[in-house]
Every structure is written in C-alpha cells, then in structure tokens.
C-alpha cells in the first residue's frame, strides 16, 4: 500500500496536503528548533513556518519552503495551529532515527482546517504508520521587529568552528556576552561562571569567516540558558549568520542543507539581557 494510492478521494476535505519522499528533510529542520514542547505552525502558499518561543525573549523559526515538498497544496490563504512538536517529531521518526542510506521514510501530511487534527502517513519498506495528532488554538507569535536596515554588525561564518564553543559553554554563567567589532578581537563570545571568565575569539581574517561587516563595537549579553538550545541548529547547519541591530537584538540564521541538497533556513531571535539594558543610553 503506497501513500499515493490511498485516500485519493478523501483529499478534497483537507485544507493542507503536503508530501515528502524523505521525512527526514522535515524532521531535521524541526529538531533544530525543538527546545520547548509546543510550536505554532503557519502554512501559506510559500510553505510552512514552525515557531517555538520561550520567556518572550527568544524565538526560533524553521522554514520549510513549498519547493522542498514533492507536492504542496493549500486550499486557503493560510492555515495556522499549535501542536506538540515533541509528539510530531516522534511520529516523523517512527521507523527509527538512524540515518541509514537508502532507508527513507515517505511522508504525507494532511490538515483539515480549524479544529482538525494533523494527520500523518509514513511508509518505509512496506510498513505503514498513520498518526493523528491533536491541534490546538495557536498563540500570538512575537514580532521581534528585526529589520535588515537596522543591522549594525553582521558576520557569516562556517558553523563547525562555533559548534564546540557552543557545546562547551560554561553553564554556570548566567549570560553569554557577544562582542562584535571592526577592531580586535572582532568577534568574542564570553561567559562568566563559577570558575572564572572564558573568551572565545574569532578573528575576521580566519578562514572560517566568510563575510565580516562590522561597523561599530557592540557588546551585548543574552541569557545563556535561552541561547544554549540553538546549538542544535548549529550542529545541523553548514553556515551561520550572526547579526545585531541598534537595540542589541540578536539574529542567528542557520543554513541547513538536507539529504537532497536543498537548502532550508532556521533562525533564532534573542533580546538582550535586561540588566544590561538599564545601563544603556537610549
């Protein structure tokens, strides 16, 4: 029984139908933002955006553009709902999360509109799994109002060099301080924990840095516990772009290449730690 033949007639009832030959192309992107249990799904003709937020300070978005799906049909202008992303990921990985070459899980995803559950059909090696996941009333998603025109500093670099730095961050530090500057040390990540302070410096001429556009020296602090989960996105991505705007808001954008060579983006927004704000002259 293959996905394409089943329930062809019933598809008419769905507002959203999406098919993927390789479910991993979706599950990996969602893993990159999985730091809370609930997520808001927002579907438009362009594709699907999934958002996770915490403490009104940090927001992560995954973009699955329509082009990565083998089939993408949306019968309304948009559809949005809240869903348990932990459960969604378990379902997408129902046949195991190992990355064996050749063993791919095919996915068909359907949503019947407001109040309906999200239905998944997954198939691998002739075995079929169907999942029905309850959807909830979507929450208002924050708008961080981050605009490219307000960007003060921007650095694009390869993700691999930041991976260990992020994985090994001293969690006894409340904050992660990010310094970006046209002068030395150019890019510095610092923590202030029980053992003392730690700095990781990345010079602008390092071969890991692809683009360096810093106009002003800025030092901002962010709650480490909120930013730490972004290491998942870092691990999956090839490149990262780090930007700060005049308010000290941080935008991290991750370029992830999937099994089929397609590029997807994940972004994290984080507002600076309040304590420091008080000292700013604004």
């Amino acid at each position: 029984m293959s996905l394409s033949t089943q329930q062809g007639d019933e598809d008419g009832q769905y507002v959203l139908i999406a098919k993927l030959d390789n479910a991993r192309n979706m599950s990996n992107i969602l893993k990159a933002i999985h730091f809370k249990e609930m997520a808001t799904v927002f579907a438009t003709a362009n594709g699907i955006k999934v958002t996770v937020e915490d403490s009104k300070c940090i927001q992560a978005n995954s973009f699955l553009q329509a082009g990565i799906f083998q089939e993408f049909i949306l019968r309304e202008e948009s559809a949005t709902f809240k869903i348990d992303i932990t459960v969604l990921l378990e379902c997408l990985n129902i046949f195991g999360s190992s990355t064996l070459p050749g063993a791919t899980t095919a996915l068909k995803m359907c949503y019947g509109g407001y109040g309906s559950p999200l239905i998944l059909w997954l198939e691998e090696g002739g075995v079929l799994t169907d999942c029905t996941i309850k959807t909830l009333e979507p929450d208002e998603v924050l708008d961080f109002n981050f605009s490219s025109t307000n960007v003060i500093n921007k650095i694009i670099m390869k993700s691999e060099c930041l991976k260990e730095a992020f994985s090994e961050l001293d969690m006894t530090s409340e904050v992660l301080e990010i310094l970006m500057s046209p002068d030395k040390p150019y890019l510095r990540l610092s923590t202030f924990g029980n053992a003392g302070s730690t700095h990781a410096d990345y010079p602008k001429d390092s071969d890991m840095v692809e683009s360096f556009q810093c106009t002003q020296t800025q030092t901002n602090r962010y709650k480490l516990s909120l930013l730490k989960p972004s290491v998942k996105a870092l691990t999956l991505s090839n490149k990262i772009s780090i930007r700060t705007d005049c308010r000290g808001f941080l935008s991290l954008q991750y370029m992830i290449r999937n099994d089929d060579g397609q590029i997807c983006f994940v972004e994290y927004y984080c507002s600076p730690d309040e304590e420091l704000d008080e000292n700013d002259d604004r």
Partner: peptide, 20 residues
C-alpha cells in the same frame, strides 16, 4: 589574580580561560 589558560586553535581561533 587569575591563572590564564589560552588555547590557540586552528583557523586563528583563540580560547581564553581566566580561572580563579
């Protein structure tokens, strides 16, 4: 009053640990 460990890494990256 710090014992400083500095790791000089590839790609020009430097990691500094100022330990009490």
């Amino acid at each position: 009053a710090r014992l400083v460990f500095t790791l000089l890494c590839k790609h020009g990256i430097t990691k500094t640990y100022n330990l009490t």
